[in-house]
Simulated scan of single mutants.
Amino acid sequence: MLSFYRRLAVKLQPLQPLWLLLALASLSWLGYLLLLAPVGVSQRWQLTALVSFAFTLNIMLLTLLFDQPPATTDASDFWSRLLQRLRGFMQYMLAWLVTILFLIILWLFLRIAVGIIAPLIL
């Protein structure tokens, strides 16, 4: 899982300014919906704006956390080995957290597609 996220982060790293621009655009869209939009429009599109903002933030988190491989040091004593294993464990837990966040975002997107976008098309 960590190697997959590292490869993905290396491929997405050059697009970091694009992810930042998309995050700012979706945040400004959400701000417009919350503050200025009519109630009907706001209720319909708030979840979409929030999910798009969460997706871009999660992509940015992925590219920041997993772009560098972990530093391998010569662990000769107990505390160095323990610290190295704890770092590996925490990075593995971060990978699971990113995966869970992606699954939640995917579930919310499917909820949007079924609940909002499908009635607009049909």
Rank of each mutant, 00 (worst) to 15 (best):
Q84T: 06
L30H: 04
L110G: 04
S3E: 10
S52L: 14
S26V: 09
W45I: 02
L103P: 00
S26P: 04
W19E: 02
G31I: 15
W96K: 08
L30N: 07
F53T: 13
L97E: 05
T99D: 00
A37L: 05
Q68L: 01
R44T: 06
F109I: 00
I104C: 13
M93P: 00
A75Y: 11
L64D: 09
S3L: 11
G88M: 07
L61P: 05
W79C: 06
I112L: 10
S80G: 09
A23R: 03
M90A: 09
A37H: 03
G40R: 15
A23V: 00
L65H: 08
R44P: 02
S3H: 11
Q68R: 13
Q43V: 13
I104H: 08
A95N: 07
Q68D: 13
T48A: 11
A49K: 03
D67I: 14
S80D: 11
S42Q: 05
Y92K: 12
L33D: 07
G88A: 14
I112T: 00
R6A: 04
I59Q: 04
T48Q: 01
S42H: 03
R111S: 13
A95Y: 04
D74M: 03
T73Q: 14
F53I: 02
D67F: 15
L64C: 14
T56L: 00
T48N: 01
L62C: 14
K11F: 06
V51T: 13
F78E: 04
P38F: 05
F78P: 00
V39D: 07
F55M: 12
P69F: 00
L33R: 06
L101E: 02
P69M: 02
F109S: 12
L12F: 08
L83C: 08
L106M: 05
A71C: 05
A37V: 01
M1D: 09
F89N: 09
W96L: 12
R81S: 08
L33G: 02
I100R: 04
G31F: 13
M90L: 09
F66I: 00
L8R: 13
G40H: 12
L61N: 08
Y32E: 01
L86E: 15
A54M: 12
T99N: 01
K11L: 09
